[in-house]
Amino acid sequence: MSDCLTHSAPDSVFLEPWHAQVFALTVHLNEAGRFSWAQWVERFSETLRRHGLDRQLDGGADYFNAWLETLEAIPAEAGNASAQEVERVRRDWEEAYLGTPHGDPVRLSAR
C-alpha cells in the first residue's frame, strides 16, 4: 500500500489508456441519462463481488476488467450494442491494427 505523504506525487490516475476510455464512456452514458449512478454502483459492486469470490482483487487491471464487463452489459440489454456486435467490431479493429504498417495511423474501414 502507498505510504505517500503528500499529493505532490500522485499515483497515475489511469494505468492504461483504455481504463480512461471505459471510465469516460461510463460517465458520459450516465450523464446522458442511460442509467443513474446508483444503478451503476449496484451493478458494478455486484460484478466486483462475483469476481472477488475466488481471489483478491488488487484494484488495478482486475478492477477495470470488472468495470468493462459491467458497462458492456448495459447497452447490450438496451439493444444498443449486442455482444455479437461488439465482437464483430472488436475483430474489425484487430484486423485494422494487424493490417496497418507500423508507424501509420490505424483506421477502421467503413462498415
Binding site: W18, Q21, L25, A81
Partner: peptide, 11 residues
C-alpha cells in the same frame, strides 16, 4: 480489453 472498449465506443 482495450480493443473491446474501442469496439463499444465505435458502436
Amino acid at each position: 480489453p482495450a480493443l473491446r472498449v474501442k469496439a463499444l465506443e465505435t458502436i
